[in-house]
Structure formats: C-alpha cells, structure tokens
Design a protein around this nucleic acid. Sequence first.
DNA 1: AATCGTTACAACCGCGAGCCT
DNA 2: CAGGCTCGCGGTTGTAACGAT
Length: 415
Amino acid sequence: MGRSPCCDKVGLKKGPWTPEEDQKLLAYIEEHGHGSWRALPAKAGLQRCGKSCRLRWTNYLRPDIKRGKFTLQEEQTIIQLHALLGNRWSAIATHLPKRTDNEIKNYWNTHLKKRLMKMGIDPVTHKPKNDALLSNDGQSKNAANLSHMAQWESARLEAEARLARQSKLRSSSFQNSITSQEFTAPSPSSPLSKPVVGPVRCLDVLKAWNGVWTKPMNEESIASASAAISVTGLARDLESPTSTLGYFENPHHISTSGIGENSTVLYEFVGNSSGSSEGVIMHNEESEEDWKGFGNSSTGHLPEYNKVGINENSISFTSGLHDLTLPMDSTWTAESLRSNTEHISPGNFVETFTDLLLSHSGDGDLSEGGGTESDNGGEGSGSGNASENCEDNKNYWNSIFNLVNNPSPSDSAMF
DNA sequence: AATCGTTACAACCGCGAGCCT
DNA sequence: CAGGCTCGCGGTTGTAACGAT
C-alpha cells in the first residue's frame, strides 16, 4: 500500500559507503542482528536510511557472499535459469549459492546479455533474433511451452520462498535462544537465509532439462495410497544446482517421488491400493494455499494441472491446456514416453518437456566442458515437421550451452 | 600525458506484496 | 476491512576503473 518515506528524509547520507560506515553496520548487526531495518540506522549511529543499510548488508557486507568471477558453471546456470524464469533475479539467486540477486543481475546485464546478443540471440526470448519472423509453428509453440514451464517453476519458487519465510518465523524463537554472537542475522528473505538444509537444491526443470530421470516407476509406488509424484523429475539428493553429471548415466527414468526434506510441491495421489484413482489433488506439503495462490502469481496465467488420473493401465495428467496419458509400465522409458506423447498436439507442454528431456538423454555433456554438438541421432530422431521444429529448438539450446561451456577460439570471436 | 569511450558494479528508486494494527 | 508500514524485488543510474586513441 503506502510507500515509506525512507530516503526522502533530509539529512541522510547517500552514495558510496565508507569503510567506517561499513564497520558500524557490521558491528551492529553482529551484535544485535538487523531487526527492523528502519530502526537500525539510528541505533547503529548511521546517517543512512534503513533501506540503504539493508542493501549494503545483503549485497555486500554479508559474510556468506561469494565474490569474484563467475564460473562457467554459474554462467550456464544463469543463462538456463534466465531462459526459464526471465528477470526473476531473486529466484535465480536461490539456485546460485552465495551469489546475490543484484550481483547476478549485474553480471547478466554486463556480460551474458551482451554475449547472447553478439551470438544473434535475443536475450529476452533466448531465441535467434531472426526467429521472430517465424510464424506460429512448432517452434513458437515450443517457446510458449517453455515459458509455461517457467511459470510453473516460478510459482514453485514463490511457494518455496513463502515456505522459507514461514519456517524462518517458526524457528525464530529457537534462533533467538542462540547466542547473539552468532554471525547470521540474516534477512528473512535474503536468498542465503533461506533454509538451505543439506544439499542445495536444483531447479527442477533445469535438472530435468539436463536429463535427470532419477527413479524407475513401479506399480507399487504408484498404487500406494499416497504416492507422490514430482512432475518435473525432481532429484532431491543432488549436490549442486548445476551438477548434472552422473544423472545422464540413468537418463531414462522419470522420478516418481519428489518427497524430500525440502520438497514443497507434490502431486499427491489420493487413491486406493488397487491403483484406481480420480480427481487427484495438487498438494503442497505446507498447505494448499500456496497452490491456490499460483493462479494469482505475477504471471497471472498459470496452468492448472489439477487432475491426475490413475488406473491400472495408465496415468494421465489433465489441465485446461494439456492432457497426457502415459502407460503404467514398470518404468517410463524414453522410448515409451516418446511413443506415448507423439499423438499429442505439438503445442503440448508435456511433449515439449519430454522432448527436451529426451533430447539430452544421450548427450550428457551439456553441463560440463568437452561437450560436442548433439546430433540427437538414434532414438532422438523423430519424423515430421514437429520433430524438425523440436530439433531446431534442441540445437539452439545446445548451441547456447556449448558455446558457454566451450568458448573455443572460434567461438570466442562471437563473444 | 590527456582525453574520451566503455565496462563493471555499487547504490538508488519506485512499485507492489504482505503484515500489522 | 482499511490503511499504514516494512520489506523485497527489479529496473535504472552514478561513478570508478580500465582501455583506446
């Protein structure tokens, strides 16, 4: 609602921080935590507004910030996440440990964006610029679906952030009991203050994108009364957000259990042990409110995959926009997924998603150096225009990642 | 050495969401 | 429920550092 006066107040200093100011701010937060940012400057003896103090702390003084050059892997992650999430720097930052959203934003604007533009790629759409001339064919549909995926992931991140805040609130009393010398005093919503318990989590779509199919599906798990499925193939035990190596070794299985200590978004099958189930609800382990809120997210038009049906022979995902039916084989293999999604319209979200997954199932060198341009031979070679469009799409993304990963002398001329 | 242009990054600004009273 | 307050986010600006001429 109303805006705070903040820096409008006269007599408050602006501009670069001096070492003395930094020291004051550090000393105060070390001892008391930041508490109310608005009240902090007066207490700390600073002639700054609270907002300025918060920014200085979160973007510069916080001890858990990694500074310096971005690694190739970080760059790749930023590009991929930006393709999925757009300018949602805070969301991107949650997947880059010890990097601030501001730093990532700056790095994007000064480095990565320019690189993409020099490569003839629109940094906004992540598509070749001349691609804009294409009509409403499969590619544009794929792009739309990609955006769709992004919206899903965005919504999930929002829910995670909310969950983190709630967890933070719940644990605040516990934290207060900890010695005041503890040098954390994090902002409740600062990326690094989020409950990073255990391995840093990877963006689900990103993982899946890189070919993460983690766990064979079996009837037992499906038929269980409360089986939960992570639609995006979430792998909870991944060490690094961008560590995809190794998952390519087993690229042909879809994850059926996204349940982990930090998992937040689950599809829960409320069926009986016979395996028959209808009207399965989307379920969030925290509360359904988060899901309900998705429809009101900033993007405003999230899909509603609100039905998952199961019977003995198949499992189906249904939304207002997309439908997918998969056989209830012992496993969902790349082959079965492909064959069972071919009948779906080219604009189908899941097909695109699957295609992306499958397209990388054989070239697991995307995330690490040494990769070669994938020709997606063998089972990846589909037929028809839709397949060609998908192929172009894959090649485009591969080219981005390979260029970023392998800035060979010839490539570097483009940068 | 001086000037100008470019780059990189810290910091600011304004908006909107959510919380509190 | 309404309105005020706080905070976080994303866009933008300011400026120091660097490089080219």
